[in-house]
Each structure stands twice: as structure tokens, then as C-alpha cells.
Design a protein around this nucleic acid. Sequence first.
DNA 1: CTATATGCAAATAGTTTGCCTGTTA
DNA 2: TAACAGGCAAACTATTTGCATATAG
Lengths: 140, 140
Amino acid sequence: MTTHLPQNHPEMPEEINGLRMTRQRQEVYRFLMGERSHPTANEVFMRIKEALPNVSLATVYNCLEALVQHNVIRQVNFDREPSRYCPNLDEHGHFHDETTGTIHDIKFKPGINLTDILDLPPNTVIKDIEITLRGQLAAS
Amino acid sequence: MTTHLPQNHPEMPEEINGLRMTRQRQEVYRFLMGERSHPTANEVFMRIKEALPNVSLATVYNCLEALVQHNVIRQVNFDREPSRYCPNLDEHGHFHDETTGTIHDIKFKPGINLTDILDLPPNTVIKDIEITLRGQLAAS
DNA sequence: CTATATGCAAATAGTTTGCCTGTTA
DNA sequence: TAACAGGCAAACTATTTGCATATAG
């Protein structure tokens, strides 16, 4: 039975996409990688406090922003609700099930290129696309 | 030269989609209908103050929410920025040009049904779809 | 030793709420 | 006259910032 966590996770690289992986960033990243629930900053905070009791919410925000800026995770926004974070870097959308409050990744059907269906002005450089759906997942 | 606006705009119906069109809601709605710039609540507020000097920002928020709830206008959110409001009820997306800060409606190419390209779970009832793009509109 | 990251508390900004008054059906 | 809408200020909440300390290259 271990009483203390090691200072660093051995399987965690020192850097991801040029971002130095400090202990706090490691915990944030590790937690997100194992989650499909698209947690909020506060949920990440609550969870990694178990491993890092002194971590602050501001640091969690800083870590999340650093990871987003370095394309390690994605930030997902639903209306005016708190931002959520997603480890899935594939191009995909998000479905917000109003009944349960859960969020599901939505893939595109194979062979679909999103820009093909949008009537974009010429010479447009798209940096990011966000597709969010809201509705209900009826019981089958 | 008119010195005062009439109490109500003659061309404005008393009700839209079951929503009673008070003087404040009329001004908010009329302004939005003539705008393609997707104004924020504060921009609406600044503008309709010209016609209604005593209007309050809270009332503008209330009017906007009432209009959104009754499907008279749409609310558009970009990341964590202030909500914007759009009089275009057709299914469409929004492109945020980072260079100018402007927002453009993006139509879908003809014959495209959005749900056709999404790999949705069965029995899903979609209430709302939001597509937002961020990027740059290069000078042609 | 210099830059960067953390922790904490305070500040910020958009939005909402409470309460009282005014208006409308 | 009962329900709803408006105006104002205060409250709320997610997020950011300033600053002092700690850590890393």
C-alpha cells in the first residue's frame, strides 16, 4: 500500500507539444485523459485536489489554458455555462443531453468534410470549428 | 420634422409568437431586425437608449431573453465572449473573423441536411444546433 | 540567477435577481 | 385588480489578475 504519490508520473513525458508538464499540469492532463464526461474547471479542481491538496483553482485554470493553447486538450462551451474540457482532438461535435445533463462526443459520418457543406466566403482561413447540439436522448 | 416618436410603432404587431410586444421589446426587436452585426446586449442597450432614454440594461436583457424564448431571435455565443443576438432564424452558422472582430452568417450549401452528416445516437431529439467558426477572412 | 509556475485573495465582467413601481388585460 | 413588465441596485458566478513565494532550466 503506497502512502505517497511519487513526485512525477513516470509515464508522463516532460513536455507535450512544447509545453513543460509540471506536476499540476500532469494531474490535470491525466485526469482529463481518463474522462469522457467533459468536466468543468471546478470539477477538475475537486478531483486533482485528491492528489495535490494544495492546488488552487486559479492554477487549474492556468493549466487548462496552457493545455488548450498547446493543442493538448480542447475547450468546449455550451451557451453561458462554465467551460468544459475535452481530451478528444479529433474533429467532432458535442451533444448536450438536457435530460441527464451529460455531454456526448458526436463524430461526423465517414467521408464528410465539414467545410464542404458550409457556404464560406472565399479566402477564409478557418482556425476552429465548434458544433454543439442540445436536445434529448429518448429512452430506447 | 418629428420631435417625438409615437408611443408604439404602427407597423409592429401587438404580439409575436405569443409574446406581447411592449415598447421596449419593440425597440429591441426593431433594432435587431435592421442589424447584421450580431450586437451584444450592451450594444442593443446603447442603441435603443436613443429612443427610450430611461430603458435599463436589465430590461434589455429581459427583452432579449423573452424574444429568444419565443423564437423571435437567436442567441449566439462565441467562447466566453458576451452573448450576441441574431434576427436570422434560418438554420445557419456563424463565422467570427478574428482580424476585424466581425461575425458573418454562414449558410449551408443547398440540399444539405445537417443531421445527415452527424453520427447521432438513435432516438435523439435535437432542439438546437450551433455551428461557430473562428478564423480569418484574408484580403482578396 | 532568471524565467516561469503556483497559490492566494481580490478584481472583473457579463448576467441575473429582488424589490418596488408602473402598465396592461 | 391581478398578472406582467420595467427600472434600479445589489448579487451572483465564472474567470482573470496581481503579487509574493517557490521551482526549474
